[in-house]
Every structure is written in C-alpha cells, then in structure tokens.
Design a binder for these strands. Structure first.
Length: 830
DNA sequence: GTTGCCAAGTTTTTT
DNA sequence: ACTTGGCAAC
C-alpha cells in the first residue's frame, strides 16, 4: 500500500528529468536578480516562491533543503506576510534555533521582521498549546502546571501501575507495556478506545494498564512525551474554538523532516493547516454547541498554505510510528498539492554520492530518484576492516590526525588545507560504541564532543535536583516527590512513606497533601512526624506555601535553584560524599549540581515570555500565574524536551561523536562511520523484516550522505559485547557499496606485517588487545577453557598459529572439534 | 531506618 | 561491563 505513496515522486521526477517546463502556477516576474532567489536552481526557486496552497517538497540528501526552507520563510516575510502568522516545525530544538538564526540573517539585523515567528518542535508547540488552553479545553485531569515525565519517570510510574494491578513486572515488563502504549498514542488511540478495541487477553491487559497509567499520570499532574501530541491533537479536534484561534493566527505552515512525522503529528498538522475560506467556517464551527468536527474541509478550492519537506530515503524513525503513508495521506488530504523534487546534491563529492546511491538502490520498497552532482573528483570512500574495536578506534584517530590541523600530504598536494577538528565526525549505530572511541580520542589528545544532550539530565544528582524543582512547580508530582522525599536521608523511610501513601489514596489526596496532614496519619512515630513536617515546611518556604509570593520566596529563578540545591541538603550530601571518598566521580557530581544552578540562571537570563508560541496576544499575560512559577515551568519543559542533537555546538573546535539518528540533517567535511557489522548495522533487532532492514539501510544512507569530502567506513573483526569478546561478521551493507568508488583495506594484515618488521617478538609487549589483534591463536592457548556459541564449554587441546589458525577443542558435551579461530565465535572462559 | 553487598538483567535508535 | 534492585546486617 505504501507503494502508492510513490506516485507523487513519479510526477515530481519528471520535473527533475525534464526541467525547465514552466509550471502553470509559477508566479510571474520571479526576478532572477532577487538576492533571495538568485543563486537557487529552478526547482529550489519554485519551492521558495510557491507560497500559496499545499506544497510537498521531496528533497534528496544534500539538495539544499534547509536553504529552501529558510529562504521560503524570508521570502514570505519580505512579501508582507506577518511573521507571527508563520509556523515552522522542525525535528530538534537545535534545528529550530538555526533556522530562526538563518532567517534573521537573511532579513538583516533588525529583529523586528521575525518578531512572533514561530519556529519550534512539535513537542514544544504542543506543550505550549496545552498549557495555554488546558483550562479552557477542560481536558480531564490536565492542569496548566502539568509536569512532563521523561523516560525514567515513565518507567518508574509504570512499574508502580503494573504492581498495583497485581501483575508481575517480569511477565509485563514496564518497558514493553510502555512501548505498546506509545504505539497506540502515536496512532491517536487513547486508553478508552484501546480498551474498546481490545479482544484478546494480552490487549485487554495492556488496556487495563493503559488506563491505570493514564490515571496515575493525571493524578500526579503529569503527561508523557506522547501525551503532548495526543492531547494537543485531541484538543484541536474537539475544541473548535481553540482550533479556530490557532487557525486564525497561523496562515503559513511549514514542516521539516516530514518523512519522520507520525500519524498524530500528521493530524496536528492537518488541524492547524488553515486555508483562505476555511477560516471563516472554522470560526463558525467554534461557536458553542457545535459538535466536534473531525474532518475539516480541505478541498482544492480551500487549500491551506502548508508546505512539507522530506525525503523518503531518509526515513529512519519508523519504529517511532513514522510512516511513508504520511506522504500519501498528505496528497489525499490536500488534493491540490504541488509536488517538487530537489535532486541535485550540493554537499558531497562524486565517490561519496555514488556509494550512497548504490547502497540505497538495494531498497526494494522505494522509487528510485536520481541523485546527481556537478562536482568533479574527490577521494574514494575508504572501507577499513580492523581487528578489534580498539584497533578500529585507533584507526579513526590516526585518520583524523592525518586529515588534521596540518593537513594530509594528499590533501596538500590536491591544494586542500588540513581540516579542523570541528570538521570531523564519528557516527555509530548505538550509543555504546562511543566509549572506545572516546578513550582513544582522549589519549590522543584530540578534543571531542558527544551529542548526548540528554545524558546530563539523566545523571542521578541532576535528576534529584530537577525532581526538587518539579515538586516546587507541581506539588502533585508524586514521582518527583518520591524521588527526593528521603534524599538526602532525613528519616522518612519506607514504612513512613507507605503509611503516607495509604493515607493519600484513602482520602484521594496527593502524597504531598498527605504529608501536610501528617498529624492525621496513624501509626507514625513522633520522629517520623517531625521529619515529614520539616520537609513540608522546607518546600513551603520555597513556594511561599504554593503562592510564590512573600518575603521568603526567591526573587529570581536562579536564586530559587540555588536555594533548592543548598537547603534540600543535596549539596551537603554530595560534598560529604566527595570528602569521604575523595573520588573524582563525586567531585563531578558536585560540579554537576553547580551546573544545574547555572543552567537555571542561564535560562532565566534568556527567557523571553513573548517568544512563547502559545502567546497569542503579546499584551495580555497567558494566565495569572506568578512569573517565577511560569518561568520555572518553562525551564523544566525546556529541560524535558532537549534532544541529543541539541548538544552540538559547531563553534567548538572538537570532533563530534553521535548516533546515526542524531546525525540526520547535519554535514561534515570528514566522516567516519564505525561498527559496520551484522547485528550492529543492520542492528540485530531490526533483522526481523524487510521493512526494518530497509530502514537500517536508510540509516546507513543518512550516514554516508552527511560526508562532504572524505568518508571512512570501518568494522572490527572482534568486538567486546557485554564484557565478552565476540567474533563479528562484516555488514552486508559493505557489499552493497560502489566498488568503483571504494578502497577496501584490511588493517589487521597491515598491522601484522608492520609489527613483525618492527618487533619480531610482537606477541610480547603492547596491550592484551594488541596481541589479540595480531595473533588470534595467542588468545586461546593450549589448556584454555573456551566457550562456543553452539558447542558450549570446552578445553583447547592443540592450536596452530597464523592467519587461519585452527584449534582442536575438546568440548564437555559434544566431544572434540577442530575450529578455525577466524570464524568460530570462541570466547575465553575463566 | 540506613548502609552495603550480591545477583540479575540489560538498550537500538528519540521527542 | 555496568547499573539496578533485593536483601541482610548494622
């Protein structure tokens, strides 16, 4: 069925193949001397100037997509469209920030042209809309001060829900239950509908847990990531007045990375897409008493100005519910859609592009579109087989050094200057692969940054500090309260908490409310009562007993953050730990606490209430929320919605390390892709179906097409997995590259020769890993106990040396076998 | 109520 | 390898 989605490309492809055919709808007087349009190709220019009506831009990798989007916004603004009526949705906050910057740069230094321009992510937009309209929309249990639960808190909550339902967490792993619920939410299925659809035992149980989880979230005044989209979509659908207000504001809608939007996002986009005449009818529909209108009219006559940009070959979020059918649905939804394909690549050299193209042709569920460049020359892509992951990391480091500040001999000959560290990046399939790379870069003294924006916020000490802040922002947030109730230890132990929880649920009040009424709770020691009272008093001091007013309350967000970290005892707790242990890790924790405080202060200094997309009228405040509280909420929200990619700062002179997913949308002069092995890329978990395999291939394609000038792809013969060294198989994708534009090398062979020349006794000296690399047989000496994946545990009887070393192994269960070490996945057992 | 040790499972990707 | 959770000792 997705096959049909490619019809659109067919039409668009004709445009690419036979360019120059003037479009009937093309605006007259498109001035080639216009600085906004001058340096664009024909299809790019059309995408920029086709401002009215639905537009689908199929932008191949490196085809100047970002440029088209930013020009388009600038073009709109310059042609008199008020910036506040433009809404651009991106995938990450960083992409949003960059887009805003670039538009601003094009329009001059005066910030006024972009005033009110909304460039943000789906999630941020939805969070803001929900806060803005929570009360008016009367969504069940949703208050404007809701907390956004990150993954860890979702998990903690689900664990509780599963246990409360008298189910075992091993049969109903909170993780997989959450995944099932997430999938449902992405399809816009709420707990009620899920329950109605459930027929078998499994889905009935999930339905029960879904309901319980939702109830628990709401009573904690919390939502999860998926709720942001689900609830916003439901709100826009069921509350015509609210929708009308949004439609009235945003006349021009733009969505980047459209191939990675899922169904809810599509629905939100549809609901927000306004057209000339439809606004009137939608305003009428907003009158009280009108039934929720599920399907807004969107005929050709009534076509909204919605522009989506994407590339099906770069769809890498299928596991998150993103679907190619969104592109199909787009044209169904908006029949007058104009489709434009951008095929010319401006980023990469011919060899890089040739490899990307040859690889992606192996995807069957795909309509081929030509990727072409006018660039000549360029170095072949290097494919490097290494010994171990350490060897691999070292190879990458050496390569970077050769490209480095001094420039490689080859580059100098070719008239190219050496690359700066910031021009280089390492991509990998899973985060776990970063570690070895980091070690190697560190010992080589090469500066690097890891795109793990979320990692900081996942650290224990940071989560504690944030939990205190969330409790301050929302006293109903039980998960946060439970996290900090006895951290640092203050004498409120398990039994006390259990009593409080029982009291809370018996009286249908929040846990914090129960603590406030601690004197009414039975069975507590005087000690416990005292400890609880002091905790409540402490929180009340911060919040001014919930009013955020009075002399006791902090005058600024920074001050609040500082006080919370200090007065909670967190700082003292970690200080004491650092002093007694003297370990570096504990020192780091203290520094991280400081960093939280400064990030709070930083946020405060940059906070601009009128930049809020949900702020429809800059004059009137959204609500009567105390400014300190709304700032705190905004801070917590920004922290909850950071992405890994957000951490990348191109101004830093450092090599960038990131997952292939995080690399989407970026480009680097030199790229190393590591871990091209079966089980890693394609990932073992993605091997179950052709669809999944093709997504892995697209992931590989995305990695390749990030490279501008140089690309090295590596794999390791042995990789340590969960502590066990394992024999690997080279990725099938390596076979799918373009042999005419690749140079394959085996580092293992070379190194063995090198080492032999240098030191005949290579087996001595060097790290254990070197020896393993150089001489596999040395790893399995006679008498060694080994494990084979099929044959089990055995003892090495004899072993031969050399490249295809064989070992005779006496297995405990299956007798003696002769194995070629190169291919047997033997591991050493102690 | 608190601390420390051992066993077990674990992650693929992310807003 | 590394974290997390359960349990026993203090």
């Amino acid at each position: 069925m997705a096959e049909d989605g490619f019809e659109a490309f067919e039409a668009a492809l004709d445009e690419v193949v036979n360019p120059g055919k003037p479009e009937p709808g093309e605006p007259e007087g498109t001035d080639a001397s216009d600085p906004l349009l001058a340096d664009l190709t024909d299809p790019q220019r059309e995408a920029v100037t086709h401002t009215e009506g639905p537009l689908l831009v199929l932008a191949a990798a490196g085809s100047g997509k970002t440029r088209v989007i930013t020009r388009r916004i600038a073009y709109l603004v310059r042609n008199g469209i008020p910036p506040w009526s433009i809404l651009a949705l991106t995938f990450t906050n960083k992409a949003a920030g960059e887009m805003r910057e670039r538009v601003l740069g094009m329009l001059g230094d005066d910030p006024s042209p972009t005033r009110g321009l909304t460039v943000t992510t789906f999630h941020s937009l939805c969070a803001r809309l929900l806060r803005r309209y929570a009360e008016q929309a009367e969504l069940p249990g949703l208050k404007p001060n809701f907390t956004i639960y990150p993954a860890a808190d979702q998990l903690a909550l689900m664990k509780r829900v599963v246990r409360d339902a008298q189910l075992s967490t091993s049969n109903w792993s909170p993780r997989s239950v959450l995944a099932a619920i997430s999938n449902a939410k992405n399809e816009l299925i709420d707990a009620e509908r899920f329950a109605a659809d459930a027929s078998d035992f499994y889905s009935k149980t999930i339905a029960k847990l879904y309901t319980g989880y939702t109830r628990a979230l709401r009573s904690a005044g919390a939502v999860d990531f998926d709720d942001l989209l689900l609830l916003a979509a439901a709100m826009l659908r069921d509350r015509p007045a609210i929708r009308a207000e949004c439609l009235g504001r945003w006349q021009y809608l733009l969505i980047d990375e459209y191939q990675d939007t899922n169904h809810v996002q599509f629905v939100i986009a549809s609901l927000l897409a306004s057209g000339g005449q439809s606004r009137e009818s939608n305003l009428l529909a907003g009158l009280p008493g009108v039934e929720p209108d599920d399907e807004p009219p969107a005929s050709g006559e009534d076509a909204p100005n919605i522009c989506v940009v994407g590339d099906p070959d770069q769809a890498i979020y299928g596991w998150r519910g993103a679907d190619i059918t969104n592109i199909l649905e787009f044209e169904e939804r908006f029949p007058s859609t104009r489709v434009i394909a951008l095929g010319q690549n401006f980023r990469s050299t011919t060899p890089i592009l040739a490899n990307a193209d040859t690889l992606i042709r192996h995807n069957k569920r795909r309509k081929h579109k030509p990727l072409f460049t006018e660039r000549e020359g360029g170095e072949d892509v290097e494919v490097l087989r290494c010994g171990t992951e350490h060897d691999e990391a070292r190879a990458v480091v050496e390569w970077f050094e050769s490209l480095g500040e001094d420039g490689s001999p080859a580059d100098r000959e070719g008239g190219l200057k050496g690359l700066a560290w910031r021009d280089m990046a390492v991509f990998y399939r899973t985060n776990a692969l970063s570690r070895v790379m980091e070690d190697e870069l560190r010992s080589a003294g090469i500066p690097y940054v890891i795109a793990r924006g979320t990692a900081f916020y996942e650290r224990e000490e940071v989560r504690h500090a944030l939990a205190y802040l969330r409790l301050v922002a929302n006293s109903a947030d039980d998960v946060s309260l439970l996290r900090v109730i006895n951290t640092p230890a203050r004498g409120i132990g398990k039994t006390t908490v259990a009593h409080l929880q029982a009291f809370a649920s018996a009286n249908s009040i929040t846990l914090f409310e129960a603590m406030r009424r601690v004197s009414d709770v039975d069975g507590l020691s005087a000690r416990a009562v005292n400890a609880v009272t002091r905790f409540v008093e402490m929180v009340d001091r911060w919040t001014g007993a919930g009013k955020f007013m009075g002399g006791e309350v902090a005058g600024s967000l920074g001050e609040l953050g500082e006080r919370v970290v200090r007065e909670s005892g967190l700082e003292a707790m970690y200080k004491k730990q650092a002093e007694t242990s003297g370990s570096e890790a504990d020192e780091e924790r203290l520094e991280n606490l400081d960093e939280v405080v400064s990030s709070v202060a930083q946020f405060e200094s940059e906070y601009a209430p009128d930049a809020d997309p949900a702020q429809f009228d800059a004059q009137a405040p959204i609500t009567d929320t105390p400014p300190l509280l709304s700032m705190l909420r905004a801070y917590l929200e920004s922290v909850a919605l950071v992405s890994d990619a957000d951490a990348i700062d191109p101004t830093q002179g450092a090599v960038t390390l990131m997952t292939l997913h995080a690399a989407k949308g970026l480009e680097f002069p030199a790229v190393a892709m590591i871990g091209l092995e079966e089980g890693l890329l394609p990932h073992a978990r993605s091997n179950q179906s052709d669809e999944m395999l093709e997504e892995e291939r697209r992931l590989c394609f995305v990695g390749i097409t990030r490279a501008m000038r140089r690309l090295t792809i590596t794999s390791a013969r042995y990789r340590t997995h969960r502590g066990m060294p394992e024999r690997t198989i080279a990725s099938r994708f390596l076979e799918e590259l373009d042999a005419d534009h690749t140079r394959v090398r085996d580092r293992d062979d070379e190194q063995m020769i090198d080492d032999f020349d240098a030191t005949p006794t290579a087996a001595i000296g060097g790290s254990p890993m070197d020896r393993q690399t150089n001489d596999l047989a040395a790893q399995f000496p006679e008498g060694a106990t080994v494990r084979h994946p099929q044959f089990g545990v055995g003892t090495v009887v004899t072993v031969s040396r050399g490249r295809y070393a064989r070992a005779r192994v006496r297995f405990r269960d299956v007798g003696e076998k002769t194995l070629i070490l190169e291919y047997a996945r033997l591991t050493r057992v102690n």
